[in-house]
Simulated assay, not measured.
Amino acid sequence: MRTVFLASILLIASIGLANASDYMGLFNDNRITKDELANVIADYMLGSSRLSLDEIRDASYVYIHWSGEPKSIVDSANRTITIYKPIKRIVALHSDAVEASMVLGAKDKVVGVSKYTKESKRQFPELSELPSVGSCFDPDIEAVVSLNPDVVISYVRWPDSSKLEEKLELLGLNIAVIRLDFYKGSTMKEEMEKLGYLLDKEKNASKYIEWFEKYENLVKSRTPEKRVKVYTCGKPLRAFGEGTGLYDLSVMAEGKNILEGREGYFDVDPEQVIVWAPEVILRWSYAGGYETNDISGMKTEYEEIVYKPGFKNVPAVKNNRVYVMSADLATAPSFPAALVTVAKWLYPDRYSDTDPREIFQEYIDNFLHINYNVSEQGSFVYPKW
Rank of each mutant, 00 (worst) to 15 (best):
K121F: 09
K121L: 14
R122I: 15
R122D: 05
Q123W: 08
Q123E: 14
Q123T: 03
Q123Y: 06
F124V: 02
F124E: 00
P125V: 02
L127I: 13
L127Q: 12
L127C: 04
L127K: 07
L130W: 04
P131D: 10
P131S: 11
P131T: 10
S132Y: 04
V133W: 04
S135Q: 02
S135G: 10
S135Y: 02
S135H: 02
S135T: 15
F137D: 08
D138L: 12
D138S: 14
D140Q: 01
D140H: 01
I141M: 15
E142F: 01
A143K: 15
A143R: 14
V145S: 08
N148F: 12
N148K: 15
D150R: 11
D150Y: 10
D150P: 09
D150I: 11
V151E: 08
V151I: 15
V151L: 09
I153G: 00
I153L: 14
S154T: 10
S154E: 03
Y155V: 00
Y155D: 11
V156C: 03
V156I: 12
R157P: 00
W158C: 06
W158H: 11
P159D: 05
P159S: 04
P159G: 06
D160C: 00
D160G: 10
S161G: 00
S162D: 12
K163R: 15
E165L: 07
E165V: 12
E165C: 03
E166P: 00
K167L: 09
K167S: 03
L168T: 03
L168R: 01
E169S: 15
E169D: 15
E169Q: 14
L170S: 12
L171M: 13
G172Y: 09
G172D: 06
G172T: 07
L173N: 08
L173A: 09
L173C: 08
N174F: 08
N174K: 13
I175K: 09
I175D: 13
I175H: 12
I175Q: 12
A176T: 09
A176I: 00
V177W: 05
V177D: 07
V177M: 04
I178A: 07
I178L: 11
I178F: 07
R179S: 04
R179Y: 04
L180H: 11
L180R: 09
D181S: 12
F182V: 05
Y183L: 10
Y183S: 10
K184Y: 11
K184E: 11
K184F: 11
G185T: 08
G185I: 07
G185E: 08
G185A: 07
M188Y: 06
K189T: 13
K189H: 03
E190T: 13
M192P: 01
M192H: 01
M192N: 01
E193Q: 11
L195H: 04
L195M: 15
G196K: 02
Y197Q: 07
Y197G: 06
L198P: 00
L198V: 09
L199R: 06
L199V: 07
L199T: 06
L199D: 09
D200W: 07
K201V: 02
E202F: 00
